[in-house]
Simulated scan of single mutants.
Amino acid sequence: MNYLQQIRAFDDYRLYEQKLSAGQVSLWYTLMSINNKTAWSTWFTAANATLESLSGLSRSGIVKNRNVLKQLGLIDFSSNGRKATSYRVSVLYTSDSAQGSVQRSTQSSAQHSVQRSTQHSSTLNKQNETKQNEINNDEADAGVTRGDVIDKWTSLWGFPNAIATPEINEWLDVLPADVVDFAITIAGEHQVKATGSLKYMRAVIEGWQKRDISTLDQAKKAAEEHDQRMKSERSGSTPARAKETLPDWAQTGATPTATRTELTPDQQAEISARIARLQQNGESRQEATT
């Protein structure tokens, strides 16, 4: 299965054929994600607990929404008693390989659903032929396609799950593919883990949208300014230490010298006279006590 063509066909189905609830969309993307992990097996099994965890739906919500998806011909499923339920995701786009898959599947118990899905797909492709040509031409001009974006995401964090895929499609609807591709590149350069990839991408994309950034050149300039600002903040966070120098007298090998004041001859004579008087007074007191 070509997952990019499948997702495009599903988006077109929702736009032109049938409006789906959020629960139905989430369940479909969840089954697509599981199907991808099975290397696109025609039939695969999925436990209800797994579907609940990935889709965010309750057990009753899964039962209700999968019945609607089956009635619309988008999926088929078969109960296996107490074992995990078997599912098949209908191919929504037309190609040689897809038609072969449909022909084989008509031999199974899901014949009516597959034929109806094929009819929906054929009508849908006719209605959107012009639109798809315009999208393909735009992507060719940009040099980066939706497929490139999905491939880069997959190479970094694995195939986008049922939560990430709708958001990626929304980003690609409002921004050129090369801008979204550049945002993924930035996340890769910052070694963002798979668990934080969606949160990081949301912050980058929302930040650009608030600043009306819609071209690759604008995105590159914004990223460069951000890096320079962060570098400046990091360098300014640690104050420069002043170089301390010791005074001359504290340098190794230096000998401190006392400060001396030179006396004039008169001052020296006065001091000598005071000393003489003190000595004379001292001798007089000593004689008086003897």
Rank of each mutant, 00 (worst) to 15 (best):
1 M>G: 02
5 Q>E: 08
6 Q>V: 00
7 I>L: 10
11 D>I: 01
11 D>M: 04
16 Y>A: 09
20 L>E: 01
24 Q>N: 05
52 E>A: 11
55 S>A: 05
57 L>F: 02
58 S>I: 01
60 S>Q: 11
65 N>Y: 05
67 N>M: 08
67 N>Y: 02
71 Q>C: 05
72 L>E: 06
72 L>K: 13
76 D>H: 09
79 S>L: 11
86 S>Q: 09
86 S>K: 11
87 Y>K: 12
92 L>H: 05
93 Y>T: 02
97 S>T: 13
106 T>H: 14
112 H>S: 13
113 S>P: 00
115 Q>E: 04
119 Q>V: 15
120 H>N: 12
129 E>W: 08
144 V>Q: 03
145 T>F: 06
150 I>P: 00
150 I>W: 02
151 D>H: 07
153 W>H: 09
154 T>P: 00
158 G>M: 07
159 F>P: 00
163 I>V: 12
164 A>L: 02
166 P>D: 01
167 E>V: 06
167 E>D: 02
170 E>D: 09
170 E>N: 10
172 L>V: 01
173 D>C: 08
188 G>I: 03
188 G>T: 03
192 V>T: 07
194 A>W: 06
197 S>T: 01
199 K>F: 09
199 K>M: 10
202 R>T: 02
210 K>S: 11
221 K>A: 11
222 A>Y: 03
226 H>D: 03
226 H>Q: 11
228 Q>M: 10
230 M>G: 00
232 S>T: 11
233 E>V: 08
243 K>W: 03
248 D>S: 14
250 A>L: 15
250 A>K: 15
253 G>M: 06
254 A>Y: 13
260 R>L: 15
266 D>A: 15
266 D>K: 13
268 Q>A: 14
273 A>K: 09
279 Q>I: 03
281 N>M: 13
284 S>I: 10
285 R>G: 11
286 Q>V: 13
290 T>C: 05
